[in-house]
């Protein structure tokens, strides 16, 4: 009876964890592409701002950022609810790591490809969207998969700003039941299963993208 009851509560928390993970991963991916492209293609000013963003976000602990958004930001007049705070903090954080993946991918496209595009008089924007990004986006996917799992694990920290995710529910249950071993084992398994599912989804997407792209890889010239 207690097992069923505990599982029901933990599952509710896991649902919140999943929602937060999905939203922040998608937002993080959007940030990653915008900032990563800005880093490579932006003018001196824009590229430097992107660099600063990446370095600052990657240089500060996620928990510090979350606490800052949650406790400090209201003191300068911006109050976000916990859920929004969590999403914003996670997205800004993982987006910076993703931006490095995008930068690395774009810079891995051989210069001669960009020269060929210029010789055909493509605009910079067209070159980015149709020549360089398509050649590299599939190669970025394994790294994005790792970041998605990283982000899923990072969501556990939002329990500390009072979001009722899986970790939060686990803490609640432990305080009631005092059966730490059982509760935390279940919780660990919950995250593990979610991570496996997430990895599988990312691998499936990569597989589909490779099939859809239809061009054999790694064989340029």
């Amino acid at each position: 009876m207690t097992w069923v009851h505990d599982l029901a509560i933990l599952t509710r928390g896991a649902g919140i964890t999943a929602i937060i993970a999905v939203i922040s991963t998608l937002l993080g991916a959007a940030i990653a592409f915008i900032v990563g492209v800005a880093r490579v293609e932006g003018g001196p000013v824009v590229a430097r701002i992107a660099l600063f963003y990446i370095e600052f976000m990657r240089g500060t602990p996620l928990l510090v950022k979350l606490f800052w958004l949650y406790y400090a930001l209201p003191l300068i007049g911006v109050s976000l609810d916990p859920f929004t705070t969590g999403i914003v903090g996670l997205s800004l954080n993982i987006g910076a790591y993703g931006a490095e993946v995008v930068r690395g991918g774009l810079q891995s496209v051989p210069d001669v490809q960009i020269e060929a595009a210029r010789a055909l008089n493509f605009s910079r924007r067209y070159t980015l969207l149709h020549i360089t990004l398509p050649q590299t986006v599939i190669e970025m996917m394994p790294a994005f998969g790792n970041l998605a799992v990283q982000n899923l694990k990072d969501t556990a920290l939002v329990s500390l700003i009072s979001i009722a995710d899986l970790t939060f529910r686990a803490q609640q249950l432990r305080n009631i039941t005092l059966d730490s071993a059982r509760i935390y084992t279940l919780t660990l398994l919950g995250y593990f299963v979610m991570a496996l599912v997430l990895s599988a989804v990312m691998r499936f997407l990569e597989h589909k993208a490779r099939r859809g792209a239809a061009f054999p890889r790694g064989m340029q010239q």
Partner: peptide, 20 residues
Amino acid sequence: FIRDTPLLIQLFFLYYVLPD
């Protein structure tokens, strides 16, 4: 398993379970 689960939960596990 270690890689796919959050540090925070591993920390709670050690902190609360070991004393038991």
